[in-house]
Design a protein around this nucleic acid. Structure first.
Lengths: 202, 202, 202, 202
DNA sequence: TATGAATGAGTATTCATTCAT
DNA sequence: CATGAATGAATACTCATTCAT
């Protein structure tokens, strides 16, 4: 068999390992992930993992990182033709709604402050030239709003960060507190937007 | 006599165990806490722990709960004679400043979503009659502000919650992202208050 | 307080320890008996046991021995005026019926072949002058039967032993096999007597 | 090739573990069997056991079951051409003689009322269609005897059971009481057969 | 008399990891 | 490529026992 095919096969297997690891994390929690549990889930035995990952830690890091990316990718794109404040509201609302349908995933991936992962997802401490994807859209929407005279002139970078972190706070609490009714949740999200939007309005 | 002294000794030892457990959690992370690690740290052997705690879980819960209380106790009380918005600003600012001096503690205790502890610290999902201490002060200040005509009339419960969770979000990010400069931090806190206060003002 | 009273108290406590140990054995099985479990059951702490028993083994031996004696004492005395074969039948029947009402007790005490206990309850290997209580009555009844011409002349000692051990075998199986219906049990006992009595009849 | 060899090796090792477990049970009693004791006896470390047995209980069950089978296998087959009563006498005699040469084994395995094993060895409570091997031969011999007019007509099932349990009782006592002389033993066995056979004769 | 403290030895079990094959 | 064997180091937990008080 050709070298190339082997390589493809090899990468594919590595990918499958990661997928299985993510499934275990989601379904049984992060401490249920063991070298053997992931190998066993795939019908393999433990040592095979070491062909593809140096040690358990590498496997774990990669799995969490990928899981995190997958989740962020879920954030639905926003339809065009909205006013800036609608845009902010809709995009966050979409994200939260999507997220709360798989709260487990978020608890495992977003709230897992795994050291290696953390550095990759800084939001407050990035330089302008290196903005996180997450933040970029907020910034552009805010800028548009300020230019349109809807939002008061301000340090857009700074404002985007506190907007984002405010929403993050509500988001985390909603994930972490399981007994908030749907109505209550809607009310909280709505009220938070109301306050924030009013707070940044012209 | 002996009885009393023994009892005091016993309680003191229990306390020391908890302190050592908290230190381990702080210094090495929560998964480094084992019955033996805490006993060993104190120069004891493992079984003695079971004199004071039914099992590891009880030890863990108590340690986390106490750690959490210690931290909350740090939140400095606010001086009198402030306007409602100043009061909110000062109390949160104090809390964040105090917290950021022991950021490790927060990562371990506040962000440790240990199941047993979580239930005790729900903020969003409490009924009115059972408000969390954390929230109570926010509510009373908001109410005072609304009555004074400083804040716009609103659902005070709801608004307090989103106020709190917004601050929580910023707070978590500040803990989690270690490379935010003091200036930047001040600016973020200031801006967030600005927006929130404006958002709820009359 | 007087020496005598102390002594009485001491013996009484020793007795209570044994009773509690027996209860544990009966209710939770023999491997549930630990120095601490028995002390705890009495509201005491473990070390007190060592005032009354050298070690756990002594406690265990004594408890089993006493339990065994209590059980044997249950064997109801037989009414007078019966023919020898009736007497045998009735006395064994009584014993088995009584025993099967607390099968747990038997499994724990009679079937517990604890080395020290065993020696005290030999049935086959006693000398004539040292017959076990258990056997004595069988022997006297057999003797009476032989003298009355109901049973065939024979080595009464030997016959008593095999009579006893035959019944013991049925008895053990009935205790050990829990799914024998009452009817089936009656039939087994009846048939066994029939065969044995016929086997020793004149 | 390698696959086959490995498999053989694997099964052999499993077998060796069981053998060592049985030896421990025989020599030191059943409560001396621990995962580590058996591994240690073989020069291995404990975890290897878990390659071959799910947990200690599986190891224990297998070991006891195998031990039991080995013992039953010892019961020598009976030569042909005997009368029914001779057949019964000889087969039981053989069994007892064989058994008493390894009395320890019996104490450990036959008298070990391990829950899982027990169910497999019920004798009294089996249905007709599901007779225990142990009982089957007794039944067939009895039937033959009844048909031949040697034994009195009777409920053969029932009679076989009491015949078996009577012998079981004697057998247990002989194992449990170590100080019965060979002569005495012979006499007991002989007398018991005499009585039983007379008891069921036509 | 009775206790609390403390321990040492032991239990079953899990896991990451290595290595020869 | 993949495995089975094997291990060392953990883990939580239990228990009998001792000793000073």
């Amino acid at each position: 068999m050709s070298n190339a095919r082997q390589r493809r096969h090899s990468e594919e297997l590595r990918g499958r390992i990661l997928e299985n690891a993510q499934e275990i994390i989601l379904e049984e929690g992060i401490e249920a992930l063991s070298v053997r549990s992931v190998a066993g889930k795939m019908g393999y035995t433990a040592p095979i993992i070491y062909h593809y990952f140096r040690d358990k830690n590498e496997l774990l890091s990669c799995a969490i990182r990928e899981g995190y990316r997958k989740i962020l990718a879920c954030a639905a794109p926003v339809e065009a033709g909205l006013t800036p404040d609608q845009e902010l509201r809709v995009s966050f609302k979409n994200f939260i709604d999507a997220a709360l349908q798989v709260p487990h995933a978020y608890k495992s991936f977003i709230l897992n402050f795994h050291s290696e992962l953390l550095a990759e997802n800084f939001v407050l401490s990035r330089s302008e030239s290196d903005e996180s994807q997450t933040l970029a859209k907020v910034i552009s929407t805010l800028t548009a709003g300020v230019e349109a005279g809807v939002f008061a002139p301000c340090d857009v970078q700074l404002t985007a960060k506190i907007f984002w972190s405010s929403m993050f706070g509500l988001f985390v609490r909603l994930i972490v507190e399981p007994h908030v009714s749907q109505d209550e949740r809607e009310a909280l999200i709505e009220r938070q937007f109301e306050v924030l939007i009013k707070g940044i309005s012209a």
